[in-house]
């Protein structure tokens, strides 16, 4: 561990990232540009989230890392090891024990608390990217809160699929002001963004943007009056813990089309299974 500065990044870089984080917290949902650093992992592997985690961690922190809800996937394991090695912090798989949770694609099922920070890995921070490729124009749209285009995106969804088919990275309006991409979490998780007691930080490494939701921020999923937002999930119970309310992954069990549905949040599922036993 002595080979590295605490949490890998040098103090100047951490200070620069913390400034961007504070600005993001001061202006909820606003994308703050920051000078993303090279990390010893490729873009697309959570470099934005890793830089935020590095700038956020203190030695007393207990870190949890999840990828699609699971603590044991390659990506989660390697990021966790990275911080064990470079920061020497304690790590955990338990949501309730963690003070900092870095995540890709999920919000834990266990409700978060005011002592926790949730760090999201973001591939594409701009919710209008695919409708309006000009960065100058999307910036102006955000500056003027001129969000008709965002609604066009949902209109197109309904026109093509008969309903709002966007099921990941479902756009939200933050504190009645900025429209934000919540990262590719399932829309099932969107209601958890709202009024959350934890600090939520979003980092996009390749795109060099940080944005944030301070505790208890109002977050509303965009929709139409006659096509209201619904947080949907597979209509099953978890095959392991029996939960009927948690977000489920479909798992293929054999070559003959056998499949089952299990909790995507492995920690939540394991605790429940223990309790049931």
């Amino acid at each position: 561990m002595s080979d590295y500065n605490f949490a890998y990044l040098d103090e100047d870089t951490k200070r620069m990232i913390r400034r961007a984080i504070l600005k993001g917290i001061a202006v909820p949902g606003y994308q703050v540009p920051f000078a993303s650093r090279e990390m010893p992992m490729p873009y697309g592997w959570g470099t934005g989230g890793v830089q935020i985690t590095a700038a956020t961690l203190v030695p007393q922190d207990v870190l949890k890392v999840i990828d699609q809800g699971a603590d044991d996937t390659t990506n989660a394991v390697s990021i966790r090891k990275f911080f064990q090695k470079t920061a020497g912090v304690e790590v955990t798989e338990r949501t309730t024990e963690a003070t900092v949770i870095q995540t890709r694609h999920r919000i834990p099922e266990t409700p978060l608390t005011g002592d926790q920070i949730l760090v999201y890995q973001v591939p594409i921070p701009e919710p209008m990217r695919f409708l309006e490729p000009r960065e100058t124009e999307t910036r102006r749209i955000h500056a003027l809160a001129d969000y008709g285009l965002m609604q066009v995106r949902l209109y197109e969804d309904i026109a093509r699929h008969g309903e709002i088919a966007t099921s990941y990275a479902y756009p939200v309006e933050v504190a009645g002001r900025y429209v934000m991409d919540p990262s590719p979490i399932p829309k099932f998780d969107n209601p958890k963004l709202d009024d959350c007691p934890a600090i939520q930080l979003f980092g996009a490494g390749r795109e060099q943007r940080i944005y944030a939701l301070p505790p208890h921020t109002g977050v509303r999923s965009l929709d139409f009056d006659d096509h209201p937002f619904t947080a949907s999930k597979a209509d099953h119970a978890c095959a392991i813990c029996g939960s009927g309310t948690s977000y489920l992954d479909e798992v293929i069990t054999d070559d003959d089309g056998g499949r089952m549905f299990v909790c995507s949040d492995t920690d939540y599922c394991a605790r429940r299974a223990e309790g049931v036993q």
């Binding site: 285009l149 609604q151 139409f224």
Partner: peptide, 8 residues
């Protein structure tokens, strides 16, 4: 929609 219409 830019002018606030929200009924699809």
């Amino acid at each position: 929609m830019a002018n606030g219409a929200r009924h699809y």
